[in-house]
Design a protein around this nucleic acid. Sequence first.
RNA 1: GGGUCGAUGGCAGAGUGGUCAAUUGCUCCUGGCUGUAAACCAGGCGACUUCGGUCUACGGCGGUUCGAAUCCGUCUCGGCCCA
Length: 383
Amino acid sequence: MIFTKEESQSNRYDMERSGILHTRVGDLMTPFFMPDATRASVRGLTNQQLKSVGIHPMVVNTYHLMLQPGQQFLHDHGGVHNLMQWDGPLLSDSGGYQVYSLIHKNKELGKITEQGAHFRSVIDGSKHILTPQKAIEIQFAIGSDMMIVLDDPRPPDAPRQEHEAAVQRTVRWAQECRDYFDNQCLQRGLSQHDRPLLFAVVQGGPYVQLRQKCAAQLAKIGFDGYGFGGRHIDSDGNFMEQIIRETAAAIPDDAPRFALGIGTPHDIVRCYRAGWDMFDCVIPSREGRHGRIFTWSQAPKGNAIIKSKDASDFYDTINISNAKFVKDFTPLDSFCKCYACKTYTKSYIRHLFHVGEPLGAQMASLHNLHFYTTLMEHLSNTK
RNA sequence: GGGUCGAUGGCAGAGUGGUCAAUUGCUCCUGGCUGUAAACCAGGCGACUUCGGUCUACGGCGGUUCGAAUCCGUCUCGGCCCA
């Protein structure tokens, strides 16, 4: 049993659930949030700091790690756990999203064919190809505990035909990944308990039917978990509520559901209500590094968050570099117990941002991650 | 005391008769970031505005000119050189 779903509690939204995800390096209570340690580091934070704010799993990236330091290096160093000295679960993203987002920004950087994703390194311009097999192979070198199949995300406003083709390709690549993965587990002598988990990704853009078709075909192949692929907001920035909900419903009930790259606290709560269990996002670290701080609008309580009508009135954001904080000697967030809030004032952290001292960005990231983990805790024990 | 060069928006520093409310950089202000090409990117930065303009500005005062940050006189302040 990979995912143990707990009985849903009464007085909660229809799709909410909680459970335990069993990985080879430990169990994870759902819902949970993973920060992105794209290049084997959550920018600016030490493992100790991450643990101090309740981070257990994190996400590393196949695309970035295959370019630097490269597969051989990862292999030689015994994987990323060893490299970065992280003993919590590691999830590795396949790199499909990078290829998509890079190609989408600049066609010179690559193209998608049936074979895989062809791209030029953004580091030195060298040519690379990421095939389904290659993606899994590198993830083995990474030594990740949760792997993601190579998928083919498309912008939400792409024509339906394009989404149809992307779904077909995603399913076919998922099958190739599955086959290669199974073969590797066999060759490496990995038992059910020792092997990493393998997640597939549901594509289909804004089309419910395509999402359902994709989910059904992936489920037929069979994976340990399923992700929501592509973007969850339309080209106007609106949260695609129905697609999120219907896609979750189309995924086997006893499998964990991973909302890739989501999101703001608001979006996470909405996705949780719609039946999603796992989240990762750059927002808390990146926005923290850029000076945006998440704050509780009142003492955090699960009930208040769950019952909040629009799922966003339980928090606010501030831009710590704003002039109004020059003489603000209160902590970033008066309800927070993270090191940054226990130790420093807004005034000081603003000062650090203004003079470009990295400690400011570090404290802001630390606080935001604590905000996220606290949010997840309160979602899972709605008290 | 004599000579000489200079004084431009928060700072540095362009401009040297109209196209100048004034290039550029920095500072400053405000946004944006959703499976991280992001310690990044974008916008703003004299006042007022019915958004078409109007007014006040390039050390002070006074001239020349249709028109001056730009030319002339003078004063103030500063750098350098000579006594």
